[in-house]
Structure formats: structure tokens, C-alpha cells
Design a protein around this nucleic acid. Sequence first.
DNA 1: GGAGAATAGTCGGAGCTAAAACTATCTACT
DNA 2: AGTAGATAGTTTTAGCTCCGACTATTCTCC
Lengths: 169, 169
Amino acid sequence: MVQPDETASALVASRSRRGRKREPVTGVDYGPLAGWLGFHLRLAQIASFQAFANEAQEIDLSPGRFALLMLIGRNPGISQTTLSRAHGSDKSTLTPALSDLKRRGLITRGRLKSDRRSYQLALTPAGHQLLARLTVCATRHDRHLDRIIGSRDRARFLQLLRKLHTELG
Amino acid sequence: MVQPDETASALVASRSRRGRKREPVTGVDYGPLAGWLGFHLRLAQIASFQAFANEAQEIDLSPGRFALLMLIGRNPGISQTTLSRAHGSDKSTLTPALSDLKRRGLITRGRLKSDRRSYQLALTPAGHQLLARLTVCATRHDRHLDRIIGSRDRARFLQLLRKLHTELG
DNA sequence: GGAGAATAGTCGGAGCTAAAACTATCTACT
DNA sequence: AGTAGATAGTTTTAGCTCCGACTATTCTCC
């Protein structure tokens, strides 16, 4: 799942993000792929990503960056390494992402006195504000997913996803 | 979902692919993230990807490339555009991927007489052979996922993933 | 207290990904 | 037939991701 993450003019969606057509392909033999969880996990993830990007079209920030903001907002003072683990991406990936967020004035990075190797991340007021706006989009998006999954299966579904993540670790 | 896909010496895994530590992070407040399907979908997908890469460590081909081989093998004569839709990636992404597979001698690309714009993709004998080897790995991997999900929920889980993919399209 | 091991973060290299612009070809419609 | 529009693939551009190597700092333990 990778999505362009235009760094252009901060809060303004510049490119069109309508999302491409993703009709279920007919007449193709998927073979064993059709029954494999991993394959469908991937397709579902891509679709969800795309849908979120649509939902948050007016805000120029990818789902990944959004998760970053949320984690920092909820855990002020968190270090980059902890953040990278919680976020599920490599610490080296965070370096450019965080300097971008800093450049946009959304986060602060202070050196920690007691351990001068690590940083302390926190949101600026602008960061909090953007986080709030994004949270609205994300909530709407997740309600969309909820409607598809159905309230009866939702909890179980979520639990299974979580189980996959933790037990494969 | 992105995984390095070393093009080095075809069938030999060159780099180490042990997969990094992915312990569930404790002491981090995930906020609303904790309850959102999209976020956990992403984490589960990353974990599954990583696990597959581990499983197929001795074969130098990413899950994405594997799905490509499978789709071509199952649908000889398929065009790149159809393949890209079935595979869930952009047609422009396929251009370098397919020329790599061709370079490795795993697929053939013939021009179609009746429509000289499109290609007809097919596996070579080496492609079939590698596909068979990968299928063994993938089956093992999916059994691993099955064990985590549990046989009781598997069908429902798969159905929900499929539903997400189709209804978000 | 100092040498070696562990840890935080950065950098460079290689690969994946998608969107948009472009070329070549085909189709439809006048 | 001829032109306008659709379609197959490629290229270009820009961004993400990882890994492994590197620097700076801290910890461990003799």
C-alpha cells in the first residue's frame, strides 16, 4: 500500500484523487489466489486506502501521515523508534516523513535532556487542528467500512485482523 | 505494501529476509486508531506480507510478482490491462515488472495479430516451474494464516475481505 | 573508569507505486 | 474514407518503503 503523498501546499489537495475504477474483474481465473487470505487482505487494504484518500480529498495528507499525527497527538513525547513500531513502518522511513510534518509546522521535535540520542515528538496547535479535521474524515470513512462489514461481524472481524498482526510478529 | 524485490540472480535469495521484530507495542495510546478497521487492515496486510516473504525466502520473488505469475499461468494470453486490474495495481506499474519477468525468462509477451496494441502474456516452462515452487510456499503461508484465523471463521473472514474490495470499488 | 555492546536516528541505495502525459492502434460514426 | 474518440502500453515524475551501513550517545560490566 503505497500512496503518493504530495507535499505541495500543505493543506490543499492539488492532484485529483478520484480513485481509479476498480470493478471486480470478470472472466479471469484467479486459481488458488481466489481462496488465499493474503491476496484478499492485500486487495481489501488497497481499496480501503483508496477510499480514505477519497474521503480526505480536501486535506492533503495520506492515511499513513494521518496515523502518524494521531499517534503523536495521543502520545506526546513519543520517540521516533517507538512511533515507528506503533505505526508499523521502519524508523528510517520516518525520518523524511517527520521532517516534512515539521516543515509544515504540524509537529515539534525536541531533544531529550536525559537521553540526547532520542527526540520527543509532539503536535503543534496547527497539528492538533489538522488532526481534528482528519479525524472527522476518518470517522466517516470507517463508518463506510462498517456499513460494508455489517455490525454483526464487525467486532469479530477487527479482532481477527488484530490477531493476524500480533501473532505473525 | 512494499517489499524490496531484488532482481539480482533470479532464483537465489541474496539478502537476508528474516523480517524485523514486530512485537505488539505496549504503552502506546492508539486513540481512535485502535478501533478503526482501516488501520488494522493495513497492519495485518503488512504482517502477512512479511510472513510470506519469510516463507518464500529461498525464492527470490515477492508476493506481488508471485500473484502476477499465478494470474498469467491461469490465464494464458491475458493482456496487461486486464492483468493489472485483476492484480490490483496500475498498468504503468506492470511495465517494468513484466519486463523483469521476461528478462528472467519466466514469461513470454507476444503481440496479438488482431489487435496490435495489446500483448498476450504467457508463462514459459521455467515460469510454470517457478510458479509451482512458489505455490508450495504460498500454500504453507496460507495454512499459517488459517491457523491464526481458525477454521470456524475463515470463510466468513475471507468473504468480508472480498466484500470490502468489491464494494469499495 | 574505560572497552565493547546496545540503542536512537540519519543516509544512501535499490525497488515499488501511482498519476499524467504521450504514442500507437483500433472503432465508430458521419 | 476520414476524423473523433476510445483503448493498450510506455515513459516521466514524484513519493513511499525497506535494508544495511553509519554517527552519536548511552549502558554494561570487568
